[in-house]
Design a protein around this nucleic acid. Structure first.
Lengths: 167, 167
DNA sequence: TCCAGTTGCTTCGAATCTGAAGCACATCAC
DNA sequence: GTGATGTGCTTCAGATTCGAAGCAACTGGA
């Protein structure tokens, strides 16, 4: 296993900086979206993902997997979005259990409306203080970490989840 | 202000990777702390910060500023921690309004107990896939971003907060 | 001294989030 | 078929979160 020793100062700093930066960025984005479009970050993520999907549709499970989110939480959010006329929910033709969420024109319009401001926040807080080279390097390292995380599931395997990887 | 143009693929990738990595790491750490010590990440942060403070004490406001957290949320968490005998709350001698939170021996013991596992999770998910050089670079870039974020408050200045910067 | 404004924290209500349990459909082995 | 399991989603109760409002204590100037 990994060694059993404390982290050195540099490692600690990296860890803390990562958590704080993401937390601050999350807060800022959340605040902007609430003020500008009256939606939360999760809702925006859902809408953006749908807008980017073929036919503007996704099944609930696909959405939950994409956004890091609980199933019940997604049901709740989908309910809110549906009430706000931003998405519709229909049962899938091929599987009576599945629910297909589809973004409406109103939903697309909302995404289009808040996107510039969203991008602006990200640029102002995250990208502005960095050189293009920095951005590339940061992206490279984080992508590596992300892939590693996705590949290595938590020690306690998620219960009641299909292990799609192993046939 | 910042230009009004969409982000290029690299910038988008960096942004998304950052959000996903931090989210996954947060979840993993949260899960470990819950399983190993029956506390949340916020609670751990509070305890760790206290353990690292002179006399094991901090005023509520100092804590709230350190952790990115709302005042009322901190009150709630402090209440939980106090009920669990992990901290004590006393009013400050020099300011009748201030509440001084102090970590107990039980609290210190808990931090000491969960810390190795916590470190292990961070190492396993975040540090393992990176070279020492990567870690340093990542820390450097993120530190720069953090400083930038701290310096540049949100467009809508926080209400009812002293603008310490401008005399 | 007295009073208005500020500050530190808590209380309150409403919104959100989660895991466990429940329900209905699907699938597989027999 | 038919029963046993598995899967997709929702419902539920409880915990956590936040902002606004409230309360008490401090501060500065008249």
């Amino acid at each position: 296993m990994t060694q059993d020793a404390p982290l050195d100062a540099g490692q600690l700093n990296t860890y803390f900086a990562l958590m704080e930066v993401s937390s601050l960025l999350h807060h800022a984005v959340e605040q902007h979206l609430r003020a500008d479009g009256d939606i939360s970050y999760v809702q925006f993520q859902i809408l953006a993902r749908l807008a980017d999907s073929p036919g503007g549709s996704r099944r609930m499970t696909e959405l939950a997997d994409g956004v890091v989110y609980s199933r019940s939480g997604l049901t709740y959010q989908a309910g809110l979005l549906e009430k706000a006329q931003l998405v519709t929910r229909t049962t899938a033709k091929d599987d009576e259990r599945s629910v297909v969420v589809t973004i409406t024109d109103t939903g697309r319009a909302l995404v289009a409306r808040v996107l510039p401001g969203h991008v602006d926040v990200v640029r102002r807080l995250l990208l502005d203080p960095l050189t293009p080279r920095d951005v590339t390097a940061l992206g490279g390292v984080l992508t590596r970490v992300r892939d590693h995380m996705r590949a290595a599931p938590p020690r306690s395997a998620t219960p009641r989840r299909t292990r799609k990887g192993q046939p």
